[in-house]
Design a protein around this nucleic acid. Structure first.
Length: 198
DNA sequence: GGTTCGATCCTT
DNA sequence: AGGATCGAACCG
């Protein structure tokens, strides 16, 4: 498996940023997925930070360490995938070792391999192709097989992308029963980008 | 081994 | 606004 010449994988120390900063730095980065069916990629346009153990909305709240959350305790840059309502969602592990933090990738803007993405999603090109965390994983062919992989190299990696322009932030989505954490403005998105989920 | 519940998506 | 749908977590 080789890396296309124009992809510049992000350096390892990129992932060492504090989680809230990483969630913003990820905006504009290129998420690249290579599978036997082909390669596809998209610019990240929306993220959410989860900072266990004090974040009630995080799977790792109260240092909950299970088969599912185990990867959140590993080193920054690892792939944390989990299944939600039949959809696979993908996170970038962040924070220091043994500190269970991660950034959820909520939406991307398709860049390459668009035909492949349309085939996987069984729909024509449009914002609905990748404007949600479960949609983009299906479009890019990301599954639980990537759990524990490292974003620094193929077949699933992050590469230098575009400058995001203006960044907005606000409360996270779909975390109703998490008390005060519900209002933390830990969701970030590129202003006016049509592929943002809401 | 049964029960509960989503970091969602899609269609009214 | 509501149903689909299924694995993980939790409780026993």
């Amino acid at each position: 498996m080789t890396i296309d010449i124009h992809y510049k994988p992000l350096p390892r120390d990129f992932y060492g940023q504090p989680t809230l900063k990483l969630a913003q730095s990820l905006l504009g980065a290129l998420l690249v997925s290579m599978t036997p069916d082909g390669s596809a990629s998209g610019y990240i346009v929306e993220t959410e930070a989860y900072i266990g153990p004090h974040d009630r909305a995080a799977h790792s709240y109260n240092n909950r360490r299970t088969k599912r959350t185990e990867m959140m305790f590993h080193r920054a840059g690892k792939v944390y995938t989990f299944v939600m309502h039949t959809h696979c969602l993908v996170n970038v592990v962040s924070g220091k070792l043994e500190q269970p933090e991660a950034v959820l990738i909520r939406a991307v803007e398709p860049y390459a391999g668009i035909d492949l993405m349309c085939n996987r999603r069984k729909m024509p090109f449009g914002k609905n192709l990748t404007n949600g965390p479960g949609k983009l994983t299906k479009a890019l062919g990301i599954t639980m097989e990537q759990y524990g992989h490292d974003f620094s190299h193929p077949p699933l990696f992050l590469a230098e992308g575009i400058q995001p322009g203006k960044i907005f932030s606000g409360p996270r989505i779909g975390i109703g029963n998490s008390g005060e954490a519900k209002e933390y403005p830990w969701r970030y998105w590129i202003a006016n980008n049509p592929f943002v989920s809401k």
